[in-house]
Computed example of a mutant assay.
Amino acid sequence: MSEHPERLYPMNRPAGHVPPIIRYSARFDHAPGHLAVLFVGMAGADDARAEQALGDFLAAAAAAPSAPAYLDRAAFVDAEGRRTVMAALYWPDRDAFGRWVAVPDIAAWRAGQRALAEDLAQWWEPVSTVPERAETIAFAEYRRGLSACPFSRLEEMGETGYWGAARDRIPASGWDRLDGAAVRLAPLAALPAGRGQRLAIRPPTGLTVIRSGVSWAACGAEQRESYERNVRPKLDAGMDYLRENPAETGCPALRQVVLTDAAGQPLEEAYSLGLFLSLHHLETWAKHHPTHLAIYHRAMAERRKYQEALELRTYNEIYVLDGDALDFEYVNCPPSTGLIPYFEARILEAAA
């Protein structure tokens, strides 16, 4: 990896700041040109059929050359009221992802052959950017996503517990404002049919993808009750606001998911997968809107109360896409899915 440019913009970290709790970020001993993560989802009128299709896809994904180094699966109810099953898959670099995508079995899945044959909606959203435009924060004993990948290691850091910490954890923020190419979110005047189509949308430069997770599996009775009574309702309210106000927030898609096991049964952990027009749009909601302030202050109260005995575990990872982003693809999807309502789509040849 090339040396970073000199810092042009000051960090947000206050002088003398001491983190309220020890947290870690993922670091890499190899030099990835671009990191690569794939979020893929499937939904249909028959929940069991979608679950089976996702399981078959993940089996094919793991068996293919250049298989993902890490994956997990989840489920949520989409805007159409359907249960969507999904997975997040991680590679050490985009070259490995590219080799995997080129495998014929995987290419057939990407083209939506199964989705069209079984009338499933399938979305395929590859997130790829240089490591300097990404950040992670995790507990050492609770690793998910990029922090859980075998090609990453955790390193203690101090950029946590103050406003602007997430931006400070993104190395490129030292020399790049990370502005987005799209500054306003407006619905398209005419939407594609979606059903029966394979659509491709190039995400705009600066699109910011956040995966922010929480686990209550290790909580004893007291802290579990506090999470359910004090934390979870505020988290749900914040996610509802983002989903219901895309134009005001610059958030075209927010999926609040529960992780599942291989049989589709829910686990005691969840995450929110959000797309924002820019890091600034995400920060504006986080710093100024009452729904996030309620989440933040409640989380800080839990930290102050339990300190090192805190049992609730959280993490996040943020990717700010550069000008070399990969297409998001939607097969047989209703036009409310992902980026479809807001960005012009190209119609690709349907799967044979």
Rank of each mutant, 00 (worst) to 15 (best):
M86K: 11
G55W: 02
R110K: 15
R49P: 00
F57H: 11
S152V: 11
S272V: 06
K305R: 14
A299F: 01
L235V: 13
L277H: 03
A262W: 02
V18Y: 05
E225M: 11
A60K: 05
A88Y: 08
Y342A: 04
G112Y: 08
E80D: 14
P65M: 14
A117C: 06
Y296C: 01
R202A: 13
E329I: 09
Q307S: 06
L191T: 03
L146R: 15
A62W: 04
A221H: 07
I295G: 07
F151A: 12
L58A: 13
N245Q: 11
G112K: 13
A217D: 14
S147K: 03
F57Y: 12
D93T: 03
A140K: 04
T208H: 09
P266D: 15
G274C: 07
S226I: 02
P104L: 11
D29S: 13
A59V: 10
W216S: 08
F151Q: 14
L235R: 13
Y319G: 07
H4E: 08
C251D: 03
E228R: 14
A200F: 05
R7F: 01
I340G: 08
E244M: 02
L339I: 06
Y342F: 12
G55R: 12
R153V: 09
S272W: 04
H280T: 04
G206T: 05
A186L: 04
H281W: 00
R144L: 08
M42G: 10
T136M: 07
D93F: 06
P192D: 11
P92S: 13
W285C: 05
G98F: 01
Y227F: 14
A50F: 07
L273M: 06
G194H: 10
A43F: 02
L71N: 15
A26S: 14
A301V: 00
E6L: 01
A67K: 14
G180F: 02
A74V: 07
G196P: 01
A75I: 03
A263K: 07
I201D: 01
H292S: 09
R167Y: 02
T129S: 10
E228D: 14
E51T: 06
L199Q: 06
R23I: 01
M300H: 04
P192F: 09
A87G: 12
Y315L: 12
L282W: 06
G41P: 05
S336A: 13
